[in-house]
Design a protein around this nucleic acid. Sequence first.
DNA 1: AAAAAAT
Length: 620
Amino acid sequence: MRTSWADSVANSASENAAPASSGNNGSLRSSRPAYVPPHLRNRTPSADLPASSPAVPSQANDRVGYAGPAGGSRWAGGSRPDYGRPGYGSGGRPAAAAAAGGWNNRSGGWERGREREVNPFGNDDGEVDSTFGEQENTGINFDAYEDIPVETSGENVPPSVNTFAEIDLAEALNQNIRRCKYVKPTPVQRNAIPIILAGRDLMACAQTGSGKTAAFCFPIISGIMREQYVQRPRGPRTVYPLALILSPTRELSCQIHDEARKFAYQTGVKVVVAYGGAPINQQLRELERGVDILVATPGRLVDLLERARVSLQMIRYLALDEADRMLDMGFEPQIRKIVEQMDMPPPGRRQTMLFSATFPKEIQRLASDFLANYIFLAVGRVGSSTDLIIQRVEYVHETDKRSHLMDLLHAQRETETNGKQSLTLVFVETKKGADSLENWLCVNGFPATTIHGDRTQQEREMALRSFKSGKTPILVATDVAARGLDIPHVAHVVNFDLPNDIDDYVHRIGRTGRAGKSGLATAFFNENNMSMARSLADLMQEANQEVPAWLTRYASRASYSGGKNRRTGGGRFGGRDFRREGSFTRVTDYYGGGNSSGGGYGVPASYGGGYGPGVASAWD
DNA sequence: AAAAAAT
C-alpha cells in the first residue's frame, strides 16, 4: 500500500527505533502499529505543550524534531534534511527516508512508493525551466501591488516578505513554484505565508483572483515536509490526514486539489480530494493509498467521518476557503460538526486559516470560535487598478431581460477578434431559471450550457469543461459558480438576476478580470433589486466605477436600517478586523490604536490584479 | 426565497 511521505518516514523511523514508544498499543505492534479504536485513544496531549502547538497524541510521542510552530526553530532535530533535492529518485524522496530504510517492511510499500507520480503540469516531464523560458507572465503588473493597502492586526505579526526566495520553503516546493511560473509572491502571499509558517492562526481577506489558494497551500505543504517523524496511527480502514481544506462547492474542491497537487509534486506530500455526487469507492481507494492533505466538501467529509474512514485526530492544519460562506447559515452546522464535534484537535493545537474575499463582521465573530489568538489580514484594493473590471448597471425590466441579454451577446460577438471566442458567464437566481435561459439561448443560436445544483455531477463538470474550452462560450450559472472558480478568458460576467447580498455580487464579478485581462461586469437592475441599490452604488463608487444617476437616486431613497446589504463607512478599503469594533470588548490589548472608524467589510470588488497571461489558476 | 452540501 502506498502511503504519504510523512507516513512512510514516520513508519520507518518508528520501526528502526528501539522499542521506545510503548504506548497503550506498544505490545501489539508487529510490522505495523495496531489499530486503536477511538474510545481507547489517549486524546489528552501533554499539558505543558505550548498553546500554539498542534495536538500530539500519545502514540505520536516517538516523533522527533518538532519544536512547535511558534517555538522558534522547527528544526530541533538538528541539521536540515536534504529534502526534495533535484534529481533524487523518482519521487523526490528525502534522503532521510531512504537512509532509514524499512520501506519494504510495509506491504507493497516499496513498489508503490517507486511508482512514478503523474506530472500534473502536463507541459513537459516536469523539468524546471531554469531560464524561466519565454516569461509568459512578465505581463504581471506587480507595480500595481505597491499601492495596495495592507491591514494586519493581532499580536506579534510576523513581517511580510518580498520574494519566495526569502521564505524558508522546501526546495522541492520552490521548484514547483517555478514550474507554475510564479515569479513573485502576491500581496496576500507575501503577508500570509510568513504568518502561517510562524504557526499562527489567520483570518485573511484578499481580493478575488489574488492568490489565496497558494497562500495557504505553500506553508501547509512546507510544514508537512518538515515534520519528518509524525507517527500516525494506522488502522485497516481509517486514514489520518495532517491537513484539511474545506470549500463550499465540489468544483472548487476539485480546483484546489488540482492546484495543491501541482504545488506538492515530488514533495512526497499526498493530496486527496473527496466530494459528493461522485462514486465514493474511488475516493476511498485514493484515501487508502495515503493522504496528507485532504481537500473536501463538508457533506462527503461528514459521511467519511461517520464511516470512520477518515479521522481528524492528527489534523494540524485546517483551512477554510471561502470561509465566510462556510460559516453562514447554510453551512455552519456541518462545519461545527466537523470542527468541534468529531476528533479534530481544538484551536491552539491545530493551526486554523480562514480565507475569503469577503468577511462580514457577524461571520468574523462566529469564526473566532475556531481560531486561537489569530492574526487578521486584509489586502485591500488598489484604486487605480480597480478599473480592470468595468462594472455597469442597467435598468432592465424583468420582461426585457432576455432580449437585453441577446443585445449584449450580439454586440460582444461582433467584437470577437483573434479567433478565440471570449467567454460570458451569466448568473441567474434559480436552477429552473438557469435551465430555461440556457434553453432559450440555444434555441436562439447562442451555444450555451448551464451549471447548477440540480444537475448531476457529471453534467456539472462537463458544463464547466465545455465552457472553459470555448465549445459553449456562454455558461448560465447559479451561485454554485459564484465563488472561487478560476476560469481563464471570462470576458464578461452578466448578473441577469442580481443576488440579494452584495458579497455574492463581489464574488460573482470576480470570475472575470483575472490574469491581467480586463473584465466587464454587467448587472440588470430593476424594481426587484431595490434592497441592493445602496450597497451596489457604494461598492461601485468605492471601486471608482461610474454610478448611474438613477442608481444614486434609488440608493439615497432606499430606506434601510443598517441592513446587511449596506456597506457602512464607505471605507478607504475593505477588510476591517471586527475585534477593532467598540462593541467587541472581550479581547483586550490587541491593539494600541483603539477603535477604527468602523469601516465596511470585505474587499472592493474589482481589483483585478494585473496578472499577465499564463499565470496559473486557482488564485482565489 | 434560493442556493449549496451525503446517500
